[in-house]
Amino acid sequence: MNELIFFVNKALISGFVIGSIYALGAIGVTLVFGILRFAHFAHGDLMTVGAFVAYVLAAAAAAAGVTAPVPLAVVVLPAVIVVTAVMALGLDRAFYRPLRRAGSPGVVLVMASIGVTLMLQGLIRLFAGPRSREMYFTEPKDIFRIDIPGAASKIVVTEPQLILFVFTLVAVVALHWFLSRSRLGKAMRAVSDNPDLARITGISIETVVRATWIIGGGLAAIAGTMLSLDVTLKPDLSFNILLPIFAATIVGGIGQPYGAIAGGFLVGFSETLAVFNWSVLLRPIARFTDGAFEVPAKLAFVPTEYKLMVPFIILVIVLIWRPTGIFKGRVL
């Protein structure tokens, strides 16, 4: 029983947490990929920027003497979403729109987004330095321990993890409602499916593009803030989180927001299950069978330091067998 709870703590909960983060990032990437038709490499840094905005605002709130039952970064989150979305719009206007207008091929936009990545990275480190920070100021980091009858150890959930669950749920439901009910959401799906056809039916491409950046930027802000609340605020998130997010996007099918959510959780769970030490679960079975086989001390599919290989392998498998992704997106 204790082993099972260890499994829930170490594999399921952390898989869900990292899966939510990937899903929130991948929705933005898949929308940009589907509507603007290029792989947005600066998305990881957009998340970091969001987290830093949250840090600054929360620090200001703490200095002003604001107290709240939840972490201050969560209190200021609406403002963070607005600031990050505006920033995403600004990046589009300054760097991507001129290239789009000039009729540059998609590859040039990808490269421009790499330029933007480097600029954001440089700015973040210039102002914040290379060290990592705590996102908590006055408030303690609450930890909930849930008793399971008949077991000595407890299921452990931290406060930011709970808030992340709630936010992911709300974001997914809201996105579903927006894409399936609202006029703008339907227009976005139409542009993603066929931009020329959408334009001649009178859909304003600029409005759709703007909505894409606002949604992508807002979700990136949530993901970045929640990730740094759960762990710490690090300035060098970008490339390490980019590969799993792209893998999630492609697994889910490009231009498919629901696919991105599924892909995010798939990649997140694969990562945690691949590095999980399965000996913990095998040991009680070995006890039960009276030592019929010996359990090694460490039995994981992938050593922790090679965690990055998991999303890459998923990516390669999908590209070989089903480049459209599980939800039948496009191969652009």
């Binding site: 760097f95 290239l99 330029g115 440089g122 700015l123 480190r125």
Partner: peptide
């Protein structure tokens, strides 16, 4: 790092 990124963006444009 910032300057490299800016150079890429400006040259492309």
């Amino acid at each position: 790092v910032f300057v490299i990124g800016l150079t890429i963006a400006l040259v492309l444009r």
